[in-house]
Structures are given as structure tokens and as C-alpha cells.
Design a protein around this nucleic acid. Structure first.
Length: 501
RNA sequence: GGCCCUAUCGUCUAUCGGUUAGGACAUCAGGUUUUCAUCCUGAAAAGCGGGGUUCGACUCCCCGUAGGGCUACCA
């Protein structure tokens, strides 16, 4: 089962929170590794000092762990601090700077790369000219053939420089195989002399990525489609080093409703945000798994546990086209997961997510906040919930001290208030005669009240329901009475009768 | 502009040369019901266009078209 040749990595950049698209990439890496008995590694690509956001590495790891797709090897959280596990570290690229420098120098020595002293101004000018001439913006190899003396003189003069990959435009086509797209070809003449080492001594993604994937013995590079165009550069780097190529698999993008790359502009993108909105991690994971992948072979299964995903996953069934992130379907899936939770689990999730602390519940009287009471509310609401944060939202009367409603609402259709009053009196009598034990049974309440209602259910049940809820829409009066309990229910009915007279 | 990728119901997708093109979400209608929701039943809804290849193309090839991605000393 264990296959030490299979090693994959999820390599996020700590520039904020975990993006749902990144979550899916992490998930696919996780699934692939678990399915094949391989190792799933977390590597932090923090090579851009300008974009680094303090604390985001920690939050990235925390999110991954809490979603259940934490890594086997690599960066991890040790008592709140960033630590690591594994024999291929360090797993934060900022701690591997000497390594990148060493490999970049090797490339310079073998003339596969060269030092470039061009200023940002010159680069910009060249690009401007190219744009004017309708040419592709590419570095013009201005520094590619500097003599060693010139290079030394420039270094001595203290001018900063970068190291660029030296691509031979005459090299012809660069061809590589992609596990989801098949053969991909790009002409060398269309590939830019990519900067490998920045003037600040940090590597660019391209160098660090290739060096690390090789040193960490990564067998499969599974990443987003946005990397497809730069893969030829990586292929060339592997070649320049004389290293064996890993397998590549470029995943389709997650899209906004307008089919552009999923972005903050058009909705939530942080995993954290979805958790805060009351989505279950299992539901989000399941949903995101199906964006770009399907179980294949005609299966119509849509609800998958993480274990089932591991069993069913196969890169061969990954789609090529991008997938729109449809929140409506997420809501449906989330409601399916909520329905499957036991009452205790549901309550625990509510606590965990802090939803019991929202104003509606926090400001309710003590007896409406007990666990037994909340469990009764959840019993009634469970099947109606799309998200955990919706608990009580449609049924505020479960937590209200006083009901505010128009008395005329009590009348069913064209009934007079006298008829309504009679119905409520009857309901009050029936309910008063019930034992405390009967009140504890939802089914018993229903049986008794349905019996009292007789043929004309609306005449009886509607006023009762309104008396208990003060609302036009709500769960059944049996359910509501059961949740509220004897004292509150009778008090509310009494109050309604008084209002009618 | 250049390069690359992609293309089945509104959305997620099945199909891997021969099907009445299937499922799910959403939508609509009906049923259950005191209301709303749930639930049940049903309906409407798709192969971008044009050429090939083939006895036969949604499926393979080419050309368009459209959408997207990339085009930084960002990842």
C-alpha cells in the first residue's frame, strides 16, 4: 500500500488566507497521495517579501488541518509556531536561500543562465517598444553575452543584478505530457528568459519550485492551470540541471459566475469565510472535490466522505474546462450534510462555530438558552437549514420574550374573532389537561391537537400557530408548542385570547 | 498584441464512434399540508459554427468562433 515513490506537494504562498481554489488543489494532492499510498507534503513558498502577510503561514496550516487535509510531511504547527516534519527540509523556501543561490550559480557556470544588470527603467522601455511594434514582450537578451570582465566590472561597481535562464530560441518545440491535458507544446522562441534569482537574493517561483521539487523528490506536480504557460520554463530548468522530469497535472480553474478566475470581487474566496457563514467543512470539501472531477464510469454519486473520495479519486477523471463555483449547489450540499448530523453533533457544531453567541440567542432569556431547549429547536429546524448560521433566523419566536404581531393575523381566512377566540380557548383547555410527560412528546402533542382540530383544521390550527409564533410562516403548532414547552405555550395562547377580547 | 488551454441543459457533470444524450443544483407545475419549509411526482432545459474521417459522429482531425489563463526582479 505504501509507495514511497509517490510524493506530491501542496505549495501555497503565504499572502493571505486559504483560497477555496487552493483548498481544492490541496485536496486533490491529498486524495492522490492517499489513494496511491504516497506522501503528501506541505511546502511554503514565501519567496516574495513584498507580498508576505504576517501570520498567514500559520493560518494556512491551521485551515488545512481543520479541513482534514493536513500534510504528512513538511511545514506544520507546533504549539502555534511553525515547525516541520520530514527529511527533506527546510520546508519554507525563505529558509533555503543558500540552496537556490548555489543552484543558480551552477547554471551560470554552465552558461545555462546569465547575470542581467538591466534596470527596471530599461526593461520597461524595451517592453514599450515591443508593444508599439506589436511584438510579444520579452527580454531582449541584452546581457546574455557580456564578457566575464564586463560582468566582474559591473559587480564591482555595485550594480545590482538578477540571474536569468538562457533560452535558445532556436531550440524548437518544448514538449511535455500533462496527465489531464495530454501533450502540450510551446515554441522555445515564445518563452522568455525568465528571472531565476532576484536582485534581493531571493529566488523566483520558477527556480525555487524546480529545485525543491527535485530535492524533495516530488513525483507528481499537481497544481492550478495558471501554471501551464510557465511549465516549459520549468521543463527547461530540469533539462539544464540534468534532472528527471516529474509528472505534471494541471487542474482546471475555479470560476466566478461570469467565468473569470474565481476572485474576491465576486464573492467569498477564503475557506475561513465559508466556515464563518455556517458551511460544514465536510460539505465544502465534498463540493469543491466535484468541481473539476467526477467519479466516472457512469456513477451519479454526489455525496462523498473524505474516505470515499480517496477511494474514488483518479486524475484520469479530472475535467479540462474551468468550473463555476455555484453557491446554490453548495447550499444544497451543506443542507444534506446538516441533515445527516446527530442532534449532539449539530449542537456541538453550533457551539464550535460560535453561533450560539449570536445576538438572537445571546439576548434570549435564560430558559431559551439551555441545551435541552436548544436541542428541541434544532430538532425542528435541522431539516430546514442550509447553513448553521441560519438557526433561529426564520423562527425568532423561539427566542423572543414577547411576540409582536397584528391581532388580525390570528384569524384563519374570513373567520370572525369570536370563532378564533373559541378555537384558542379549546386549544388552551386541551393543552392544560396534558401531563408534563405528554408535553415531552412531540408526537403526543400532534395526536391530541389533531384530534381537537377535527374536520376544520385551519380554523383551529392556524390561530394556535399564530398565537404561539406571531408569525405568518413557521413550523407546525405541534412542533412549536413542543419546543416552547407548557408554560410558555399556555402563556402565549392566553395572551392571544386577551388580545382578541 | 503574442502564446497556451478549453468548449454537452442557466450551473456542476455522465457519455470515452452506434443512447429516446443520463444524473444533480437551480427553475416551473402538481401532490401532501393550518402557513412556510421539508418531502413525493412530473415538466421544461444541452452537444458553438463549418468542413473532413467513417457505414455511422457529442465523441477523432482541421479551420473558424467564443470564453479563460499567462504574458513581472508575484505566486
Amino acid at each position: 500500500m505504501h509507495d514511497q515513490n509517490i510524493r506530491v506537494r501542496f505549495a501555497p504562498s503565504p499572502t493571505g488566507y486559504l483560497h477555496v481554489g487552493s483548498l481544492r488543489t490541496a485536496l486533490y494532492n491529498y486524495l492522490f497521495a492517499k489513494k496511491r499510498g504516497g506522501t503528501y507534503i506541505l511546502r511554503i513558498e514565501d519567496t516574495d517579501q513584498k507580498r508576505y502577510v504576517a501570520g498567514s503561514t500559520e493560518s494556512l496550516i491551521r485551515s488545512l488541518d481543520s479541513m482534514g487535509v493536513g500534510a504528512d510531511e513538511g511545514a506544520l504547527l507546533d504549539d502555534g509556531n511553525i515547525g516541520e516534519k520530514g527529511a527533506y527540509g527546510p520546508y519554507q523556501q525563505s529558509k533555503r536561500l543558500a540552496l537556490y543561490k548555489e543552484y543558480a550559480e551552477k547554471l551560470v557556470a554552465s552558461r545555462k543562465a546569465y547575470r542581467c544588470f538591466c534596470t527596471a527603467e530599461r526593461l520597461e522601455e524595451v517592453r514599450k517598444e515591443q508593444a508599439a511594434a506589436k511584438q510579444a514582450p520579452k527580454y531582449d537578451k541584452h546581457c546574455a553575452n557580456l564578457s566575464e570582465e564586463d560582468v566582474q566590472a559591473l559587480i564591482d561597481s555595485g550594480v545590482g543584478h538578477v540571474i536569468r535562464l538562457n533560452i535558445d530560441p532556436e531550440r524548437g518545440e518544448i514538449i511535455f505530457q500533462d496527465l489531464v491535458r495530454g501533450e502540450v507544446k510551446i515554441h522555445a522562441k515564445d518563452v522568455d528568459d525568465q528571472v531565476l534569482m532576484k536582485s534581493d537574493g531571493f529566488p523566483t517561483y520558477h527556480l525555487a519550485n524546480v529545485v525543491d521539487d527535485h530535492l524533495m523528490e516530488i513525483s507528481h506536480v499537481i497544481r492550478g492551470e495558471e501554471w501551464l504557460p510557465s511549465t516549459p520554463k520549468h521543463v527547461l530548468l530540469y533539462e539544464a540541471f540534468g534532472w528527471e522530469l516529474p509528472e505534471f497535472a494541471h487542474l482546471p480553474l475555479l470560476l466566478n459566475p461570469d467565468r473569470s478566475k474565481l476572485s474576491k470581487r465576486q464573492g467569498e474566496v477564503a475557506v475561513e469565510d465559508y466556515m464563518k457563514k455556517g458551511y460544514l467543512k465536510e460539505a465544502l470539501l465534498n463540493f469543491v472535490a466535484l468541481l473539476g472531477w467526477n467519479p466516472g464510469s457512469g456513477s451519479t454519486q454526489e455525496i462523498f466522505s473524505l474516505e470515499e473520495l480517496v477511494q474514488a479519486f483518479d486524475l484520469a477523471n479530472v475535467h479540462k474546462g474551468g468550473a463555476v463555483f455555484d453557491v446554490q449547489k453548495l447550499d444544497w450540499m451543506n443542507s444534506e450534510y446538516i441533515k445527516k448530523l446527530s442532534l449532539d453533533e449539530l449542537l456541538a457544531r453550533m457551539k464550535e462555530g460560535g453561533w450560539l453567541e449570536k445576538d438572537l440567542i445571546k439576548n434570549a432569556p435564560e430558559n431559551f438558552r439551555s441545551e435541552t431547549y436548544l436541542k428541541k429547536v434544532l430538532t425542528v429546524e435541522q431539516e430546514r437549514l442550509a447553513r448553521l448560521d441560519q438557526v433561529g433566523e426564520n423562527n425568532p419566536f423561539f427566542f423572543a420574550t414577547e411576540l409582536v404581531y397584528d391581532t388580525s393575523l390570528l384569524n384563519w381566512k374570513d373567520n370572525t374573532k369570536e370563532a378564533t377566540g373559541e378555537a384558542l380557548q379549546k386549544a388552551a383547555e386541551v393543552l392544560k389537561n396534558l401531563s408534563e410527560e405528554d408535553w415531552g412528546e412531540k408526537a403526543k402533542l400532534e395526536t391530541v391537537l389533531m384530534e381537537a382540530a377535527g374536520e376544520k383544521r385551519g380554523d383551529f390550527l392556524w390561530p394556535l400557530r399564530v398565537a404561539l409564533t406571531g408569525a405568518q410562516k413557521s413550523p407546525s403548532p405541534f412542533d412549536v408548542a413542543w419546543v416552547l414547552g407548557r408554560e410558555t405555550s399556555l402563556a402565549r395562547i392566553d395572551n392571544a385570547i386577551k388580545r382578541l377580547s
